[in-house]
Lab assay of single mutants.
Amino acid sequence: MSIQHFRVALIPFFAAFCLPVFAHPETLVKVKDAEDQLGARVGYIELDLNSGKILESFRPEERFPMMSTFKVLLCGAVLSRVDAGQEQLGRRIHYSQNDLVEYSPVTEKHLTDGMTVRELCSAAITMSDNTAANLLLTTIGGPKELTAFLHNMGDHVTRLDRWEPELNEAIPNDERDTTMPAAMATTLRKLLTGELLTLASRQQLIDWMEADKVAGPLLRSALPAGWFIADKSGAGERGSRGIIAALGPDGKPSRIVVIYTTGSQATMDERNRQIAEIGASLIKHW
């Protein structure tokens, strides 16, 4: 067993022997301040990774656009098919120029040779490549099948209805392509620590998230040296922004954090800054 596999296998073990965790309302004060600064709703939840206990939450059962955070769930569904012998990570998928959609920095470079399922998941999570996500959605049967996968996990809230990039439209009061912070946090925890996926697939999923290259201005910008984070960000229309993450000190994750916002007129930089400040408060009061 590799060191990384050992780390993920012992996530519940280490967490069980940690000192009790206590909620700190100071972080919620910052979440509410972010709402004021952005002029928009902000949803927040913080779960203990081992027990699933909610440590703090704000608007945990209000719907927010998922945006690209759905790509972690998508690759979880792909990995479940791999575990069941219905898919192979090494299978190569070929596609054409007509398949390319807006923001496809990886797939646009491989029109000639195609990409493997493993490479597509890596591109979808680490670079948020939209064509990679659409190609992977095709392998599982489309958005409705991802929703069905989530329902089978016990998540009857999260739903995907459309493809990239239309799913980022974020129309107010439109339930399409949305989740709730509580539902997303619980589902992410199941994917990373539950028995739904094999140990190898859980490790692969967290490795992809740990290698995320496009979430630097968010929670990662607030992390002290030595902290662990595996995350996936999302951005959408109407001032929408979000991030889902597993993080913790001492090089291992111990909490799940989900943050979503929508309806702001603020710039992307300002949305990023507010999420980073929430992260800084979380870490300060850990």
Rank of each mutant, 00 (worst) to 15 (best):
Ala77Val: 12
Tyr95Ala: 04
Ile243His: 04
Val257Trp: 02
Ser233Arg: 00
Gln97Thr: 13
Ser254Asn: 15
Ser57Ile: 07
Phe64Ser: 00
Asp113Lys: 13
Gly226Ile: 04
Ala133Trp: 00
Met153Trp: 10
Thr139His: 09
His156Leu: 13
Gly90Lys: 12
Ala40Phe: 04
Tyr103Arg: 04
Ala276Gly: 09
Gly242Ser: 08
Ile244Trp: 00
His151Tyr: 13
Ser201Phe: 05
His285Pro: 01
Leu247Met: 15
Cys75Gln: 02
Tyr103Gln: 05
Leu197Trp: 02
Thr69Phe: 00
Tyr260Met: 13
Lys71Pro: 00
Met115Phe: 04
Ala200Tyr: 13
Leu47Lys: 04
Leu205His: 01
His110Ser: 10
Ala182Phe: 15
Phe228Gly: 05
Arg81Phe: 08
Glu175Trp: 13
Thr267Asn: 14
Thr139Pro: 04
Thr112Gly: 15
Leu120Thr: 03
Ala123Cys: 07
Thr69Pro: 05
Lys109Phe: 10
Ala235Cys: 06
Trp163Gly: 08
Lys252Met: 13
Arg271Val: 10
Met115Gly: 01
Trp227Asn: 03
Gly142Asn: 07
Gln88Ala: 14
Gly279Ile: 06
Arg176Ile: 03
Lys190Thr: 15
Ile45Cys: 14
Trp208Val: 00
Ser240Trp: 00
Gly52Glu: 07
Leu79Phe: 05
Asn272Pro: 02
Gly39Leu: 11
Asp231Asn: 05
Leu223Asn: 04
Ala34Asn: 04
Asp113Pro: 08
Gly242Ala: 10
Glu35His: 02
Met153Asn: 09
Ala124Thr: 13
Trp286Asn: 03
Val214Trp: 06
Asp36Asn: 15
Glu210Gln: 14
Gly194Ala: 12
Ser57Val: 11
Pro181Met: 02
Ser122Asn: 14
Val72Met: 06
Ala185Ser: 09
Cys121Pro: 00
Glu277Thr: 10
Ser233Gln: 02
Lys53Asp: 15
Leu223Met: 14
Asp207Gln: 11
His156Val: 12
Glu210Ser: 08
Leu223Asp: 02
Gly39Glu: 13
Gly43Gln: 00
Ser264Trp: 05
Gly85Asp: 11
Ser57Arg: 11
His151Gly: 14
Arg81Cys: 06
Arg273Tyr: 10
Gly236Gln: 01
Thr193Val: 13
Asn272His: 05
Lys53Asn: 14
Met209Cys: 06
His94Val: 11
Leu74Gln: 00
Ile283Ser: 07
Asp129Glu: 04
Ile125Arg: 00
Asn173Phe: 14
